[in-house]
Nucleic acid binder design. Structure first.
Lengths: 206, 206
DNA sequence: AGGTATGCCATACGCTGTAAGGTGTCAAGC
DNA sequence: GCTTGACACCTTACAGCGTATGGCATACCT
């Protein structure tokens, strides 16, 4: 029974699945190899090393992002793309952190160019395009990153309880209020928060 | 010649200095111990483990941030604090990444509360305070994080040269323009970019 | 002087990424 | 049919990591 041979493609796909399932920090060469029914060193015939695997799966993730379409209304098209990016990073929370540490990948450059092009087409002069791009990119990455490390709602409840015990409400009234907004959140901390700030930036740029 | 004994304080201070000098990823228990003229296991009599060291030094860094003062003009006081936070994180680029992975520390909670209080004092209703806080916090962390992983200017020049060679300018005209803005940057990508988006958010909230 | 607490060290375990070299299988050429 | 060589995978080993366990010397209190 000959097993299907390895390939860069298969290695990266499996690595991505493993990162999604167990978290990126639990992804090791040995475990990835085991998942593929193979020993660790065999992977090195298809990828240069772990770094290449990491940048490889980041690129796969970035490729899932819907690029701002050319031609249409700049605000709406950028909005759609930003929300798509946020959704993609929410599906793969580890990717957001990796984008920062791995170098700029082809998919990243393509995204950057599309976003910049949309701004220019929207009539922004170079200077404002420059700043607008940074505002948007930093919001997409920063906010999502922040959200990805936010405790899951069950943990949050426990954490909030701890806090309210250790730090009496009367000393930190505003923080207590904020925490309650998170816990009892009408619309949990989800899409809407991201979009609120996104619109703030888009309207501000306009 | 009795050496000065270890202490939690001394361990954390040295860890911080080492992180500043070599980068957080090069900070190991063995190296930290060596720096203190001691073996690795001796550290465990003063801190519970590496995680506690990490959250400890993050807390030290967060403590350096100037809190929004109570009473004054909300916009100006938040602006000052945000810029202070940005400056602090620029001094300790590793800290920004760690804030996300270590749990909320006392200094973090204090900062959150002050920021929230300033917004409330500025007349914001609970809902807008909630969103405004996230917009500001996410910008401070996200933007600074992004900036911290940005290639140093000498590397940037090399990277930009690589890019302009591999990806012909005519295929990615907007990206090429953006890169040139970074390289030849009138005011490099420094304080001004951070403040531009900060003001965008502050004005938007207002 | 004896007991005990304190502060540090030595050893060891299981984990990591990966360099170097070995082994088995299979296709092409004579 | 046999040899040759390429290819895919494996074995072993090394240096490093965080840390559990237990030992030892000093210093203080009774």
């Amino acid at each position: 029974m000959p097993r299907t041979p390895l390939s860069r493609e298969r290695v990266l796909r499996t690595a991505m699945a493993l990162a999604d399932a167990d978290g990126i920090e639990r992804l090791s060469m040995r475990k990835l190899a085991g998942e593929l029914g193979v020993e660790a060193m065999s992977l090195y015939h298809h990828v240069a090393g772990k770094d290449e695997i990491l940048s490889g799966i980041v690129d796969l993730v970035l490729g899932e992002i819907e690029l701002p379409a050319s031609g249409a209304d700049w605000k709406e098209t950028i909005r759609r793309s930003a929300i798509s990016a946020h959704a993609v990073f929410s599906r793969h929370p580890w990717a957001c952190r990796l984008v920062l540490t791995t170098g700029p990948s082809p998919a990243r450059l393509r995204f950057m160019d599309s976003l910049l092009a949309s701004l220019r087409e929207g009539g922004f002069p170079p200077g404002l395009t420059y700043h607008g791009y940074h505002a948007l990119d930093s919001h997409i990455m920063g906010f999502t990153l922040w959200q990805g490390n936010f405790p899951a709602s069950e943990d949050l409840a426990a954490l909030a309880a701890d806090f309210l015990r250790d730090f009496p409400t009367e000393d930190y009234p505003d923080l207590a209020e904020h925490i309650e907004q998170h816990v009892g959140g009408s619309g949990h901390q989800g899409e809407s928060d991201f979009e609120f700030v996104l619109d703030l930036i888009l309207d501000g740029l306009e």
